[in-house]
Design a protein around this nucleic acid. Structure first.
Lengths: 186, 186
DNA sequence: TGTGAAACTTGCCAGTGACAAGATTGCGCG
DNA sequence: CGCGCAATCTTGTCACTGGCAAGTTTCACA
């Protein structure tokens, strides 16, 4: 939508986003340095400001992209709640940089329109997965169930990323998540 | 244990910790400024370094204190898993500054001894609550159950703090958490 | 071709964390 | 009683950061 064309650099906006994801993976979203990104992309220290305004603008773009990617991921696993939960955790681990930015709204513009659209899509995918599951059995409270499913998947993912989980859970996040998430289905 | 006595300032170490908690509540743990803390305490900009070494040292002290407080909280609600979960969420909301630091290990020294002792106490309290619950019924997998309970409580708390939850959950975290956590007991 | 706008640069300022070196204060020990 | 000494705190500095302003280069389009 903000179709930035290739000018002097080629595609600086995209290059900066890529560099940002790399940097976030290395030092976390808070320690991100715009000047470092500029160096990585081979441009002057003020170039990023032209494309994103400021640091919050850059992180807003990343968060929006992240919610978009998450919505896609959840939609693909739509008919199986357990696998959707596993996919959620897998997303967090695989796209750690996105995930860490997405749930740190104090770092970006939470009122951004494009971002909220993507966030809405992700939320809808989550709820539709829960609704599909409960449609066969007893009448369920979809609101509460989707909140519970989201909480347990999000909690496990967060704890995994924080390195807070004990060693005994192993090193395969998908497998470990599946075991924990199954606790909801029983 | 590092029994710092009152010298010139009176009790600068304690004053800095208090100021830090206040500041974390205002701007988040990453945007914390040591110089700002110094100003709040009325000392020179280099005074904090003497007590905490650097920023990571200060946040390590906060995280350790936080895990200690959490362990106490969980121990008090030990015999009721649901209420322990509610207490966990309540801790996160009430002591937001502590909670936000505790689960951001990239900001502090995760290998600190005192911190890990406190963290261990909190983990033990959590597991003992789960074990107590399952002792009466069918033989359960305490490892998995405690991981699930921790995940759902932690996830709900994190999403609540991030402002990611939809408006319909209301504004009472304890009540909302109880509804979601009950989903595990059924 | 040339004009206007977009993309980028250079230069600057205030603020920050960390370090080094010095000043001050109060405790312990003779 | 007083003196040394270590803990506490200050002053000064450096490299770095984000953000702003003003200038320069490059491209699109008439």
């Amino acid at each position: 939508m903000t179709g930035t064309r290739a000018y002097h650099h080629g595609d600086l906006r995209r290059a900066l986003l890529a560099a940002a994801l790399e940097a976030v993976g290395e030092v976390g979203p808070a320690a991100l340095s715009l000047r470092d990104l500029a160096r990585r992309a081979g441009v002057s220290h003020a170039a990023p400001a032209h494309h994103f305004g400021d640091k919050a603008g850059l992180l807003t773009a990343i968060a929006a992209q992240g919610f978009d990617l998450l919505a896609q991921t959840l939609t693909e696993a739509d008919d199986d709640l357990l696998e959707a939960g596993v996919a959620y955790v897998d997303f967090a681990v695989t796209h750690r940089a996105y995930f860490e930015v997405m749930f740190r709204p104090e770092l970006y513009r939470a009122d951004d329109a494009e971002l909220n659209a993507a966030r809405g899509r992700a939320g809808a995918a989550l709820r539709s997965g829960v609704a599909a599951l409960s449609s066969g059995g007893a009448p369920a409270d979809t609101d509460r169930d989707s909140l519970a499913a989201w909480s347990i998947a999000h909690g496990f993912a967060t704890l995994w990323l924080a390195g807070a989980l004990p060693d005994r859970v192993g090193d395969d996040p998908r497998e470990a998540a599946r075991a924990v998430l199954r606790r909801l289905s029983t």
